[in-house]
Computed example of a mutant assay.
Amino acid sequence: MQTTTAMKSNVEASASASAPAIAARRRRPIAPLEPVSNRARWVLGIGFFVLFIALWAVATLGGFVKPTFLASPVTMVKEGWLLFTEYNFIHDIGMTVWRVFGGFVLAAVVAVPLGIAMGAWKPVEAFFEPFVSFCRYLPASAFIPLLILWAGIGEAQKLLVIFIGSVFQIILMVAVIVGGARKDLVEAAYTLGANSSGIVKRVLIPGAAPGIAETLRLVLGWAWTYVIVAELIGSSSGIGHMITDSQALLNTGQIIFGIIVIGVIGLVSDFAFKALNRRLFAWSTI
């Protein structure tokens, strides 16, 4: 009976102690590391775009910025409609998307296995890491003159620009993720009789898979920046080609529309990647 009474008093004491903390949390709508609901996240995210467009409209429609330097939202929408109806802009979008995903897939096919090998086996890391780190700092655009000499101005050159811009980043990031595996899991697998290849297949790769998927999602965003560089030179199609032509005509409406289209496609692909990662790795916290 005394034990029950003591337990009740302890529960009441802990509840009374936590009550002020809960009340204080309710009084703080914004607090460090405090999560927000999905509805609030959507409202805040959309709210920023609304505010941005409103400021843009005030600056351009109010006459504060000349149309030569910055088109208004209304002009941008009109120019975008003109691109789709008269200039077959959908073809340019399709070509750019193909180049991004083509170069990115090539980079992932090469980089992920090499990154896993570097993370799992330290001699492999010691052999490749200095060269990969050196290449990681080289801008992909610097290779364009050489790539034009080697591959011409066709699709191969554009795919290679995206490949070079993505592959070294993926290699190092995957190697870091795989190399950061929990040592206790590896030791437990050895205790259970696993060999080296079994450790990689059954411990390192499954444990690193969510992180690798997240790395690919991030690097895909970088690939979109390289495709515009690839399309600025020697290209007859693509969003970058359209932006270059519009710049020659001082058509800022079409330039802005092309930039926004890239952002929208990138955002959609990012959400799709996130959804796929959550579905494949529902047990992960990433």
Rank of each mutant, 00 (worst) to 15 (best):
39 R>Q: 10
112 V>N: 05
84 F>D: 11
106 L>G: 02
96 T>E: 06
198 G>C: 05
276 L>H: 04
57 A>T: 13
24 A>I: 10
219 V>A: 04
259 I>G: 00
228 I>Q: 00
174 V>N: 02
246 S>I: 03
24 A>L: 10
90 I>D: 14
237 S>K: 09
49 F>D: 05
87 Y>V: 14
199 I>A: 10
238 G>I: 03
95 M>I: 14
149 L>D: 02
244 T>M: 12
60 T>V: 08
44 L>R: 14
69 F>S: 08
177 I>Y: 04
113 P>A: 12
51 L>R: 05
6 A>H: 09
4 T>K: 07
35 P>L: 01
220 L>S: 01
132 V>W: 02
204 L>T: 06
78 K>I: 13
27 R>H: 04
7 M>R: 11
198 G>R: 09
8 K>E: 05
64 F>R: 13
205 I>D: 03
33 L>E: 03
15 A>Y: 08
234 G>P: 10
174 V>W: 03
229 V>K: 05
68 T>S: 10
166 S>C: 15
193 G>P: 05
67 P>T: 05
141 S>W: 02
140 A>I: 11
131 F>Y: 10
92 D>S: 11
112 V>P: 03
238 G>W: 02
19 A>K: 14
211 G>D: 10
257 F>T: 01
48 F>G: 09
110 V>T: 05
250 L>F: 12
36 V>M: 14
180 G>Q: 14
157 Q>K: 12
3 T>W: 11
88 N>T: 10
22 I>L: 13
201 K>L: 10
264 V>P: 11
167 V>W: 01
141 S>L: 15
94 G>M: 07
140 A>Y: 05
226 Y>V: 02
181 A>W: 01
133 S>L: 15
94 G>T: 06
53 I>N: 15
18 S>D: 14
242 M>I: 14
130 P>E: 12
269 S>Y: 08
6 A>V: 06
107 A>L: 06
145 P>I: 11
155 E>D: 09
222 W>E: 06
260 I>D: 11
114 L>Q: 04
275 A>F: 15
227 V>G: 01
237 S>I: 07
209 A>H: 04
106 L>N: 01
146 L>M: 14
16 S>P: 02
206 P>V: 09
18 S>V: 07
2 Q>H: 08
248 A>Q: 13
48 F>P: 03
127 F>H: 03
205 I>P: 00
85 T>V: 08
77 V>C: 07
179 G>R: 03
179 G>W: 07
200 V>Q: 00
71 A>D: 04
63 G>T: 09
230 A>L: 10
13 A>W: 03
233 I>T: 12
230 A>D: 06
173 M>A: 15
257 F>R: 00
242 M>K: 07
16 S>L: 05
176 V>E: 07
170 I>F: 05
180 G>T: 04
61 L>R: 12
205 I>R: 04
